[in-house]
Every structure is written in C-alpha cells, then in structure tokens.
Amino acid sequence: MAVVDYESKYDQADKIKYLNYLAGIASRYRKEKEDCPKLRMIVIYTGDIRREQVSSEYDIGAVKMNIEPAFLSELDGGSILQHLADKVTRNELLTDEELMEMIILPLSYRKKQEKEKRIYETVNLAVRMQDRSQQVFALAGILAFTDKIIDRETANRIRRAIEMTQVAMIFEEEKQQALTQAARIFEEEKRHAVEAEKKKAADSVKAERKKNADFKQQTVMKMIEKGY
C-alpha cells in the first residue's frame, strides 16, 4: 500500500507527519484485527525542490523510515506539453498517466511565473479536450494540485469551465436519451405501419377473393336460369 503526499518545500520535520500517516494506517488495521500490508511513503516534490536537497531516510534509533521521493523538477515539461497538445489536437483520449502529467505539469517548474504560465497552458489544453469526463477530471485535478499558487481569476475560470462541461454532459446525456426514445418511437410507428399495410393487403386479397367467388356464383346462377 502506498501513501502519497506532495511538498513544495523540503523540511526534515515533515518526516514526523509521514510517520503519523503510516502509524495511523497500521493502527486502523490492528483495530480491525487484520494484518497491515507493507507500506510505502511516496513524496512528490514540486519543481522548487532538487534531488540533492532531500534526504530520503529518517532514523531516530528505535524508528527508521525511508521515503520514496519523486522530483517533478526532473520532468521534461516542454516535451510532455507538446505530446499532450498533439493528442488533444487529434481528439485522442489520454491515458491515465498522461492525465496525471497534465495535472502536475505546472508544479514541475521552479519560478512562480513559469508555474502560472504552465497553469494557463494546461487549462487551455484541458478545455479543448473532447471527452467530457476527462476534461472535468483534468480541470479539477489542476485546480486541486495548484491551489497554493493559482491566481483567483484562473481558479474561477477553471470552476466555470467545469460547471459548463458538467452541464454539457447533462445535455449530451439527455440528448442521447431523447434520440434513443425517438428511435424507439420511430421503430414502433414503422412496425405499426407495416402491420397496417399487411392487414390492408390481406383485407384487399380477401375482398378480391370474395368478389371473385360472388362473381362465379352469380355466373353459375345465370347459367342455371338460362338452362345451360
């Protein structure tokens, strides 16, 4: 089992926080009388932190913990953004990994101006996504992960985009339901029309047969009357 946290600064004291996370999970398993699985503590460091600044070990004698650090500063942000933009332009679905890359991409930069620029770019990219569910996921993720650095105007823009997308999803669902119902009604009407035509044809044949039978009967009667 992995516990994941993310930090925009490095502080050795955070290790105590991680220990509390892990101890809480172990305690919960003990209360439920179940064996606690092997625990991993993964810490994602934003672009503000470099690998050489971080110690992955916390050792206070009786307690020793190792974290698994991941450094967004080591991502190739430009290449990732271009790859995502190409897929969105081709209206292709993103993989789960690509969605996460879009969400955390702004955090891979160190300077505030760079972060804000990438937030703007990833939001614009997410808005262009054709799949509504992926669009909402990406926008909500960007809003959640960049909450400490995003400006109010951009945050409000993301919220409006999410609301509009959710409304569009409702409209799309209702449209599909309406189309399905219309198709069902059309098929039902067509079936009724076919059945009516069949009945009309059958009645016509029946009437024609009766007419022929009556004609034959009348002809025979006339022949009898004339002594044939």
Results as ranks from 00 to 15, higher is better:
Glu174Arg: 09
Ala183Lys: 02
Arg152Leu: 09
Lys211Val: 04
Glu188Gln: 09
Lys206Trp: 03
Glu153Ile: 10
Met169Cys: 07
Phe186His: 15
Ile224Asn: 01
Ala196Ser: 02
Glu197Tyr: 12
Arg184Gln: 01
Glu172Asn: 06
Arg191Val: 02
His192Cys: 08
Ala182Met: 03
Glu163Phe: 05
Ala161Glu: 04
Lys210Trp: 04
Met164Lys: 14
Ala207Leu: 02
Ala155Trp: 02
Ala207Asp: 06
Thr180Leu: 07
Gln166Asn: 14
Glu153Leu: 09
Arg191Tyr: 06
Lys175Ile: 11
Ile150Trp: 02
Asp203Trp: 02
Ile162Trp: 00
Asp151His: 09
Glu174Ile: 06
Asn212Pro: 12
Ala178Glu: 07
Ala178Phe: 05
Ala161Trp: 01
Arg209Cys: 06
Gln166Phe: 06
Asn212Gly: 13
Lys175Cys: 06
Ala201Asn: 11
Glu173Ser: 14
Lys211Pro: 09
Ile149Glu: 03
Glu173Phe: 10
Ala168Leu: 12
Glu208Ile: 05
Thr180Pro: 09
Leu179Pro: 04
Thr154Ile: 09
Arg159Phe: 08
Thr219Ser: 06
Asn156Ser: 14
Glu208Asn: 02
Glu188Val: 01
Phe186Gly: 01
Asn212Leu: 15
Lys206Ala: 04
Val205Asn: 14
Asp151Tyr: 00
Glu208Leu: 04
Glu225Phe: 03
Thr180His: 07
Glu174Leu: 10
Val205Ser: 09
Leu179Lys: 01
Lys190Gly: 04
Ala155Thr: 03
Lys211Leu: 11
Leu179Cys: 05
Ala183Cys: 00
Met223Trp: 01
Val205Phe: 12
Met221Ile: 03
Gln181Val: 02
Ala155Ser: 11
Phe171Gln: 15
Val167Gln: 14
Glu173Asn: 15
Ile224Met: 07
Lys210Val: 07
Lys206Phe: 15
Ala207Ser: 07
Glu208Gln: 03
Leu179Glu: 03
Ile162Phe: 01
His192Leu: 12
Glu188Met: 06
Arg157Gln: 12
Ser204Pro: 10
Lys211Ser: 09
Thr165Cys: 08
Lys175Leu: 05
Arg191His: 11
Arg159Ile: 08
Glu163Leu: 09
Arg152Asp: 12
Lys190Leu: 02
Lys199Met: 11
Asp214Phe: 04
Ile150Leu: 03
Ser204Trp: 15
Arg184Trp: 15
Asn156Gly: 13
Ala178Leu: 07
Lys190Tyr: 07
Asp147His: 11
Gln218Met: 05
Met223Tyr: 12
Asp214Pro: 00
Met164Thr: 08
Lys211Arg: 15
Arg191Asn: 08
Ile185Glu: 08
Glu153Asn: 08
Ile162Leu: 00
Ala207Arg: 06
Thr219Asn: 05
Ile149Met: 02
Arg191Glu: 00
Lys199Gly: 10
Gln218Thr: 04
Ala213Met: 15
Leu179Ile: 03
Glu208Pro: 05
Arg160Val: 10
